[in-house]
């Protein structure tokens, strides 16, 4: 049975070669209208910072604000696509992705008291009373295998799946007005340091549908982290339950998964017909 499937698959692939091979270099822009970041959850009395300032500030981490996720309108990408016959294509992408979100926490200090203490002159715009703004930037590579339908049409739909690797380029504690050299900044740095647990290299799968019209391609796809490939450097510790009584709050896992819904529009900039005797572009 397996042999039959293998032979049929090979035949299917090889049959495409007789129809020609094309290679395209292109650029695309994509937007990410939805970004879902799941995080590890802790008991209400766990993951709590007890800071020793004059307000006896206690900060209880409570996750990420999903409604606050904002990505740049258009992210850039370049791609290389190898088309095998009329149906099959392989595509490698190199892209950049950035978005903002906010970590939320409960502050033990009443807001009025907090402002009176830390911002009496009202000159700090982003006081970060119970949120910390985060700015994420990634580079990414993806490899896709696609199947294109309706070979006789100009507008050709296609389906594709693939794998993506993302590299955390930058992760910042974003503050509209930096709080210079004061105690509150130190506290926020400590909180941020414990949020800075996303792996530098993370792995994802993606799948999508799209349409090709001459040199233009429109895609809608979902990218999500691979379940068995943790995105947090301390995920194993969380799973093993080694976090109780850890008052230092170090090595605390935060991120469970990352998923994005994306829309992309690409155009071939250079195209090569690899089956011709002399390659032209």
């Amino acid at each position: 049975m397996y042999k039959k499937i293998l032979i049929l698959s090979l035949s299917f692939l090889l049959s495409g070669i007789s129809y020609g091979q094309f290679f395209h270099l292109g650029a695309k822009g994509f937007s990410t209208p939805a970004t879902l970041m799941n995080y590890y959850e802790y008991d209400v009395t766990d993951y709590v910072y007890y800071f020793s300032n004059q307000r006896n500030e206690t900060v209880r981490f409570s996750g990420f604000k999903t409604s606050s996720v904002k990505s740049n309108l258009i992210s850039p990408a370049i791609y290389m696509r190898y088309e095998l016959g009329n149906h099959i294509f392989f595509q490698a992408d190199f892209f950049h992705l950035s978005f903002h979100n906010e970590a939320e926490y409960k502050n033990s200090v009443d807001y009025k008291d907090f402002v009176d203490e830390f911002n009496p002159d009202g000159n700090i715009d982003n006081l970060e009373y119970n949120t910390i703004k985060l700015k994420w930037k990634f580079w990414g590579n993806s490899l896709s295998l696609g199947y294109r339908l309706a070979k006789a049409k100009a507008l050709r739909p296609h389906l594709y799946i693939g794998a993506t690797v993302m590299y955390l380029e930058n992760f910042q504690h974003y503050s509209a007005t930096p709080i210079n050299e004061d105690y509150q900044r130190d506290i926020n740095q400590i909180i941020f340091k414990n949020l800075d647990t996303y792996k530098i290299t993370t792995f994802y799968y993606h799948f999508g549908i799209g349409f090709k019209y001459h040199a233009v391609t429109l895609n809608a796809y979902i990218m999500s982290s691979i379940p068995n490939q943790p995105v947090d450097i301390y995920a194993d510790k969380y799973e093993e339950g080694n976090i109780s009584n850890d008052i230092s709050l170090s090595e605390r896992a935060n991120y469970k998964s990352l998923s994005t819904l994306n829309l992309s529009l690409g155009i071939n900039l250079l195209s090569f017909n690899l089956t011709k005797k002399d390659l032209k572009y």
Binding site: Y49, Q189, K193
Partner: peptide, 11 residues
């Protein structure tokens, strides 16, 4: 970090 949580905690 210049200062760690251990420097600022009250627990």
């Amino acid at each position: 970090l210049k200062d760690n949580y251990e420097d600022f905690r009250r627990v």
